[in-house]
Write a protein that binds this DNA or RNA. Structure first.
Lengths: 340, 340
DNA sequence: CAAGAAATCCAAAGCGCTTTGGCTAGCCCA
DNA sequence: TGGGCTAGCCAAAGCGCTTTGGATTTCTTG
């Protein structure tokens, strides 16, 4: 069933049917009702390719997905996607993933924009001076960054969580509990979130005239194994920390293992706080010692990004508003006063 | 730069240029070279919407993604996606995710097929008599199922791993080590992979005149917490198992925690084998006691599915070939002879 | 050397939709 | 009563590509 057939069976022109369906005013209410009715009854669905060709609107939002043998899409992505999909579904938006290598990233963005394959894109895991943001800004396609850049000289729309304050609060709490040597096991610090988290920790420590020396600071890809290694390095050091702040729940699995391997206990020997993105399959309450966390649902962020993307597509949202979500600090059994 | 402009600047017709670009024979080699050259030099890229409208080919593969507040996309998905994307990238295929609710699943499939939004789709996590498979078969769009159904009365193309043999081998090994009470902590057993795994275990046990009584069998969503709960239930039972086979690495995190909580040790008190889908961020070698696993890379499966999908799209693969991958059984420290 | 066969190329017709630029009929008001 | 509006509808021109059905030229071949 296409427009032609539908309009023919209604004895109306394609123009009128099209307008009736798309809510244009130059069609009488009665006709519109009649058209709507017939469309529904016959299950008419405008062909998206045709519509896209005619309008340039795609009804899709895009994500340029880095791939490659050595590239791991991180598990956060799927949670984000859950949220995004959940919103997109209610607005008839599909999501197109364009796989690319790091080298071809720019080309890929240019392609999907030039081809009008998508109406908007979202960017994740931004780096400090992320070139993608400047590129998208220049290409003038609606976009939202999940996260932020650092030190770019223009504004753009983003959604981020307040990593700095979160980690600042976490560090402050540990200091107030008497800890003096506090370590940070961070994610890859070319990414902004890691920069912000480190800054938060440093800021809190500075308030108490403490510092974050190099040996108390690790920046690694967020895997269980890396968490383990970093923790071992930390705890076997002559000036081992009494508390560790860890950028991810997955890494903290390794941290816990390292602590146990060394015959230490949480929180008696070492306190631990991790960041929790709220995975359904791994919850901090269920660690052997319930884990204190800074918590923010990455899924909720996905839904919100989709919502704002939809708003930008339809012109409801304009401007460059950045949105920063506060982060919960949830205290559980994994922290205690510094050991004697 | 569009076809018209390009052909005009070459003083050729659109027809010829189009044919030259798409490798049709009715154009001289010299002309083809000239066209190819100009196209590359001017960065000409055919508009996909137009091409799609004209040909009905989309250059995309589709995935209908179940979403909803209570629906968790499982973390395996992202690994699968990595593999899929890695292959798709090299073949200029994009992937479109169409979010849907369970209720609208069929409608969504019908829509993407009717609209020719995608050239092929893949289906994951099939259930025993999965309706999607019959539907796609009927809609006559190229598709591949990652996994299998059970008891459907027609053939279809799929890629699966040999879950049954894998778990059979795992169980057999445990029996040969002297274990008599072997438990299975399985995933949701409406899904075929779980059915196959249970069958494998039962088959191995039957060989030795052993059985899998209800109290030694759990079927739950694959989260850490569920693994913990199941293991507690098992081990606190009067007839506790001396060995556990577990359907996922994530669940086995919980299993290990439960074992430790109960003051038991691996493998002295209880042996443990889990299935490993090969996540980059969680590896069985790095469990406190290195975990024996049945192993199969879900990422490799993703790449293979993409490859076959591409082949089906271009007509290189036809028929209903099912492909079943063998699964490695990797022995590490988590298994030993039965206690006592 | 003429006729049939290739080899090349082209004009134009879609693909299914949106949108521009009318056209017509009914209404109001002077 | 007639001119100007407006409401409501339509024909047709794209959007940028592929593909059908020739047309023209060149090559074979008996």
């Amino acid at each position: 069933m296409n427009l032609k057939q539908l309009s023919h069976m209604l004895s109306l022109s394609q123009t009128t049917v099209s307008r009736a369906l798309n809510g244009y005013p130059e069609v009488s209410e009665e006709t519109r009702r009649r058209v709507m009715d017939a469309a529904k009854r016959h299950g008419y669905r405008p062909n998206p390719s045709a519509r896209r060709l005619a309008t340039g609107k795609a009804g899709m939002i895009g994500y340029v997905m880095p791939t490659g043998a050595s590239v791991d899409i991180d598990p956060h992505f799927v949670e984000f996607l859950s949220g995004l999909g959940d919103y997109a579904r209610t607005h008839d938006l599909d999501l197109v993933l364009s796989p690319t290598t790091a080298d071809d990233e720019e080309t890929t963005y240019r392609r999907i924009v030039a081809n009008k394959q998508v109406d908007a894109v979202y960017v994740s895991s931004p780096r400090a001076a992320d070139r993608r943001v400047a590129l998208l800004n220049h290409l003038a396609i609606p976009f939202i960054v999940h996260g932020r850049t650092e030190g770019l000289d223009f504004e753009y729309p983003y959604l981020d969580i307040d990593n700095e304050t979160a980690f600042q609060e976490a560090a402050r709490l540990l200091v107030q509990l008497g800890h003096r040597r506090i370590a940070l096991i961070n994610g890859d610090d070319t990414q902004t979130f890691a920069i912000h988290r480190e800054r938060g920790v440093r800021r809190a420590l500075a308030t108490f005239d403490l510092a974050l020396p190099d040996h108390l600071r690790h920046s690694v890809a967020m895997t269980e194994e890396n968490g383990y290694r970093a923790a071992r390095r930390l705890l076997e050091h002559s000036e081992a920390p009494t508390a560790i702040i860890c950028s991810s729940l997955i890494m903290s699995l390794g941290v816990v293992r390292a602590i146990r391997d060394l015959g230490l206990t949480i929180p008696a020997d070492v306190s631990l706080i991790a960041h929790d993105d709220v995975f359904p399959w791994l919850t901090p309450e269920n660690f052997s010692v319930p884990l204190s966390t800074t918590r923010s649902s990455i899924r909720a962020a996905g839904a919100r990004v989709a919502e704002r993307l939809a708003a930008r597509i339809s012109g409801l949202e304009t401007g460059v508003r950045g949105e920063i979500w506060p982060v919960d600090l949830v205290v559980r059994g994994s922290i205690a006063g510094a050991p004697g």
